[in-house]
Amino acid sequence: MLVIDSIRKQFGDLVAVDSVSLSIAAGEIFGLLGPNGAGKTTTVNMCVGLLRPDRGSIAIGDTGDPTNKDVRRLVGVAPQSLAIYDEMSGRENVTFFGKMQGLRGSELKERVAWALEFVGLADRQQDKASEYSGGMKRRLNLAIAVVHKPKLLLLDEPTVGVDPQSRNAIFEHILALREMDTTIIYTTHYMEEAQRLCDRVGIMDRGNLLAIDSVDGLIETHGGASRVIATRPDGEAVEMQTDDPLAELQRLQSNGGLQTFHVERANLETVFLNLTGRALRDE
């Protein structure tokens, strides 16, 4: 669905994206994980044709370059900033952006109704966006992005500033979109979200794509050993790193027994730490 080949983008002296290549299949949820300033949004902006890469190429579907208007019709975007008109109702917002995507007449009405229903705003569609909560605004942002039934959906930090309940609702909407065979690029700096949603994750830092794989694959390759923390019946604390925590626990049990234990498995945070030498949320 999306093929990115060695793209580079530079702003003055700052290289925002350098030699990034990846390929995303139809119906896949691909996570771009990295701290702020890693180059995620610049990559997304090049994917939707807002920016032209200084070098390399991007192709969407069979049509090609996203700077082409017809190609952009295949793409939906929910920007990180809440790109909605507060003075207009939810319905008016979705209708307006539907028109910008070229929808007209009964098709527009049907798609607007579907999008509002999809994100759970049908009952509040006549209310002004300024009266929505933060979570509702995020859902409206998503409704606008999907109103024209895009093949490729780019979600740029879609859960920033959202309460846990709305966050879960957004996750459900994203998973539902995958069921509809929509390809999704999901940028985030929350590793839990990437772990929960994404089929594959690309780790970005300082404009470079450091690794791409499934979450399990990344952990296995770059996560390092798990940590076993246990307590002996006499109160002695035991802590160790191991690639096989189950075997280590069995060994401890047979050798003096265990009163308590827990295993800390490597996650994307540790993957990032191992790849970059710093924590994901250092910035």
Binding site: K69, R72, V75, P79, S81, A83, Y85, F97, M100
Partner: peptide, 14 residues
């Protein structure tokens, strides 16, 4: 400033 221009520019219009 509020991002709607970016959204408009991402739409298939010039």
């Amino acid at each position: 400033t509020r991002g709607t221009l970016v959204r408009l520019r991402m739409a298939p219009i010039s």
